[in-house]
């Protein structure tokens, strides 16, 4: 095995890693937004909202991410929606926006379940006490339930971030210059079909391993708090 190509091509891996991490970060960030709203729908007493959330979650979790990605990537332009360039990244990274949207929509369904479980793990008495003082539902949620649910949620959210980092490799298919895409480019340029993949795998592993250690630390911290 010969890794001497790294001297010439290291920037491919560095840039690709940046795009991968950024993509995962924004996907989870927007996913959290979508997830909170869906989780609130799901635990509400409104059958209509509950239904919307259930259908969304079941559908997203029941279909392949690749299909969802293609639906967004080919479908939205077909319907007349153009993907804007992502601020700061410029134009030479491919349709970063399409990747972020698809991954967010996907992640939102999983995050919703994380939030729902986290919220429902908070003792019912907490909500009752807040309501008995006269606090409206949303205020009770915001001030009493969510801060406590967050303790249950944070580790699971970290895991979701790890999952998204790994699954994000799929966006290379639509030409986003992420780690996987760039590794593939290096394979082509150097006529080395194998070694660049090893490099990519090691980078993915370093990111996810570091993250999971970090989450473990965080969990320990919270147990003592």
């Amino acid at each position: 095995m010969d890794f001497s190509f790294l001297l010439d091509y290291k920037n491919f891996f560095i840039n690709g890693t940046q795009i991968t991490v950024l993509l995962a970060f924004f996907a989870v960030l927007f996913g959290i937004g979508i997830g909170i709203v869906l989780a609130m729908f799901k635990i509400s007493n409104n059958k209509f909202l509950k239904g919307i959330a259930s259908v969304y979650i079941e559908f997203i979790r029941g279909t392949p991410l690749l299909v969802q990605l293609f639906i967004i990537y080919y479908g939205l332009p077909y319907l007349g929606v153009e993907f804007p360039d992502f601020p700061l990244l410029g134009q030479n990274v491919g349709d970063f926006m399409a990747g972020v949207i698809a991954m967010s929509i996907n992640s939102g369904a999983y995050v919703a379940e994380i939030f729902r479980a986290g919220i429902q793990a908070v003792d019912k008495g907490q909500m009752e006490a807040a309501r008995s003082l006269g606090m409206p539902y949303l205020m009770s949620m915001k001030k009493i339930i969510l801060p406590q649910a967050f303790k249950n949620i944070l580790p699971a959210l970290g895991n979701e971030f790890i999952v998204v980092i790994k699954e994000s490799a799929i966006v290379s298919i639509i030409g986003i210059h992420d780690l996987m895409y760039n590794a593939d480019t290096v394979r082509g340029n150097t006529y080395k079909p194998f070694e660049p993949l090893i490099v990519a795998a090691v980078i993915y592993f370093i990111i996810t391993f570091t993250l999971s250690k970090f989450i473990g630390l965080l969990e320990k911290r919270m147990d003592t708090a």
Binding site: D123, G125, E128, A129, A130, S132, I144, P147, Q148, K151
Partner: peptide
Amino acid sequence: FQQFNLFNH
């Protein structure tokens, strides 16, 4: 309440 239900956080 029987279980006090103080806000734990």
